[in-house]
Nucleic acid binder design. Structure first.
Length: 305
DNA sequence: ATATCTTCCTGGGGGC
DNA sequence: TGCCCCCAGGAAGATA
């Protein structure tokens, strides 16, 4: 499913294929996909029609197109949920089974005429949101900075791959919370972009158990965690980038990275690679956590008592 | 106030 | 073979 690296690949595709063009027509095929647009389908279609896309922006797993128009500054916000796709395609292509929204784009040489939102499970969606000036509190006494963000995404923290996210800023954010480590890194208001898979991968790489308390976590632990998060996201982004077909703005939910490089997630009952390399037998276990699964090595990720 | 639980949704897959 | 039930996931809103 799409996580930060996949969403970034989509953003780059939108920047290449959609930015600078106008949205000439809008067709909502399933209103559930725009349920976060509270004014409804016809309002969405009318307000979006005729706007010009000036940029593609991402923070965490939220993605938005900045719209230039006569109205107040507005973003078309998209979230892929767990099965969403954005595809740039020719109008002649048959409708996908789970096509939810079709945007007709102004003609441009060599570029397809439609941007389509496809979503099987409908956890994702699109909606219009006004841009609001938002204070981002920067770490380490650097004060605050104003960013113009869609109102609906203004609460999201800085992103894992944002240079402003540092081990120290993560340490400060974690220490402010009183919860379990994995809960905290999945919380988009602590650090944006981490989903269940990368949370488990980063915790494994940092040799930390997700049940550790954020209130007592130490700097060296957080430094390893931050390094692991940046590393795992960075490598996944490279993998997603290399398989990116320039004709598509595509997320297919099965990036090559997932197939080859997972150390913990989905490996229940299989040997922990790190322990194996050290000549020690240890098997990845799966535990229920927050209504989903957590994978960890019982030996090198010590569970707190 | 903060922390945690529930809900939204579909189709693949396991069990029988 | 087919049905039924569970499971996967992010995040908003409800609840404790």
């Amino acid at each position: 499913m799409p996580e930060l690296p996949e969403v970034e690949v989509v953003r780059r595709g939108l920047a290449d294929w959609v930015v600078g063009r106008s949205i000439e027509s809008v067709q909502v095929l399933d209103p559930r996909s725009i349920r976060r647009h509270s004014a409804g389908t016809s309002d969405f279609e009318q307000r979006l029609s005729g706007s010009v896309v000036s940029a593609a922006v991402r923070r965490g797993k939220f993605l938005w197109l900045l719209l230039d128009g006569p109205r107040q500054p507005t973003a078309l916000v998209g979230h892929l949920g767990m099965s969403g796709q954005l595809l740039v395609e020719e109008s002649i292509e048959p409708d996908e089974k789970h096509l939810k929204v079709r945007l007709g784009l102004s003609p441009e040489a060599g570029k397809p005429r439609e941007l389509r939102f496809i979503d099987q499970r409908i956890f994702g969606g699109m909606f219009l949101s006004p841009l609001v000036p938002t204070h981002d509190h920067l770490p380490g006494g650097m004060g605050s900075e104003i960013s113009w963000l869609p109102e609906a995404a203004a609460h999201i923290a800085r992103d894992v791959l944002d240079p402003v996210s540092t081990p120290e800023s993560l340490y400060m954010a974690l220490r402010k919370r009183n919860t379990q480590l994995k809960r905290a890194i999945l919380d988009q208001e602590v650090i944006a972009g981490v989903g269940n898979i990368y949370a488990d991968e980063a915790l494994w790489a940092a040799k930390l158990h997700g049940l550790r308390s954020t209130a007592t976590i130490r700097r060296p632990d957080v430094e390893r965690l931050h390094t692991a998060l940046v590393d795992v996201m960075g490598r996944a982004l490279e993998a997603g980038g290399t398989s990116f077909d320039a004709l598509y703005v595509n997320v297919n939910g099965a990036s090559g990275y997932f197939d080859r490089s997972l150390n913990a997630y989905g490996r229940e009952g299989k040997p922990c690679y790190r322990c194996e390399a050290a000549g020690i037998e240890s098997v990845i276990r799966r535990d229920a956590f927050m209504g989903r699964s957590s994978y960890s090595c019982p030996r090198c990720q010590r569970k707190p008592r």
